[in-house]
């Protein structure tokens, strides 16, 4: 399954979820769901905004883990 590494990126950038929420215009609840892997999909526009705010590549946020699968 695809694992979101948002928590790691936030820690690297020393950024809070609230700050990211203000920068990308996505609610904390949705970002929290994204961080904990509770979402089914992510829009390119959201991914672009997050990459822009964190100054990173999509590959830094997304990781494929073949050992686990989505329910």
């Amino acid at each position: 399954m695809i694992v979101i590494r948002l928590d790691r990126m936030l820690a690297d950038r020393k950024m809070q979820l609230q700050e990211l929420s203000d920068l990308v215009g996505v609610s904390i609840a949705n970002l929290s769901n994204l961080k904990t892997g509770k979402v089914r999909a992510i829009r390119f526009s959201t991914l672009e905004s997050i990459c822009d705010a964190l100054n990173c590549q999509p590959g830094d946020l997304l990781e494929y883990d073949p050992s686990s699968s989505r329910e």
């Binding site: 949705n30 509770k38 999909a41 992510i42």
Partner: peptide
Amino acid sequence: QEEVDGTV
């Protein structure tokens, strides 16, 4: 609807 609700 579930797909849309689960998309950020």
